[in-house]
């Protein structure tokens, strides 16, 4: 699972690809170069499970870089994207940034510039994956609750008192107090504040 971060590079220019490949090996990163958007899309999903980032040229034969960016978004691939272009005019840059690109670099660019952007992208991807993993754990824990406990949990964030919850669920106050204590124990939270935070984190979208 934790192999070294991967830089995916989609650029049709062989010289630029060679230069960025050298750079990646200098940074001790794994690099997978592709000459077209289509060949990148043909790779297996497992490859994309790796932590990393995508360096994408806008002008490509066949499918363009912006189209690839769109396709990835539709497929809910959250890999951070660094756009590189030989001619980054304003409309293109705006479209790329609006499409969620981390940054747009115009060729030629300095080594430090691309290096720092790659590191930043990988760092962001790392953080995102961490959060996702945590959220998955939380969801798992929430899923372990019984249906009755979940009934109660759904009403707590609405700010209802135990009495009100009891009334709404047609149960005794005692039963609600019991369930509430049990679910807090199961989720490993000690206060209502912690419980609310946990629910919020679990509900956060990708």
């Amino acid at each position: 699972m934790m192999s070294s971060p991967t830089v995916f590079l989609v650029d049709d220019d062989a010289a630029v690809t060679r230069a960025i490949t050298s750079l990646a090996s200098l940074m001790l990163l794994r690099i997978l170069p592709f000459a077209s958007a289509e060949s990148f899309l043909a790779i297996k999903d497992e490859e994309l499970q790796n932590e990393g980032c995508l360096i994408l040229d806008i002008r490509l034969p066949g499918m363009s870089g912006l189209d690839l960016q769109r396709t990835l978004r539709e497929r809910q691939c959250a890999l951070p994207v660094i756009i590189i272009s030989g001619h980054a005019d304003v409309p293109l840059t705006v479209e790329a940034m609006r499409g969620g690109a981390l940054t747009v670099l115009e060729k030629p660019f300095g080594l430090e510039m691309i290096k720092s952007q790659i590191l930043r992208a990988i760092d962001l991807d790392h953080q995102r994956r961490d959060q996702e993993r945590q959220r998955d754990l939380l969801r798992e824990r929430l899923n372990k609750l019984t249906a009755r406990e979940r009934e109660v949990l759904a009403l707590i964030p609405l700010g209802l008192t135990n009495k009100q919850i009891a009334a709404q669920l047609h149960l005794t106050l005692r039963a609600i107090e019991d369930r509430r204590a049990r679910l807090m124990r199961r989720l490993g939270v000690r206060s209502i504040a912690e419980l609310l935070l946990l629910v919020q984190q679990a509900q956060a979208t990708t």
Binding site: A15, A19, L26, L111
Partner: peptide
């Protein structure tokens, strides 16, 4: 001209990067 400028930036990008890589090496 537009496409040639784009084309020109490819080798320039490679040169700029390779030169700095050489320096780091």
């Amino acid at each position: 001209a537009g496409s040639l400028a784009h084309e020109l930036n490819q080798p320039l990008a490679a040169v700029a990067l390779q030169a700095e890589i050489a320096g780091q090496l």
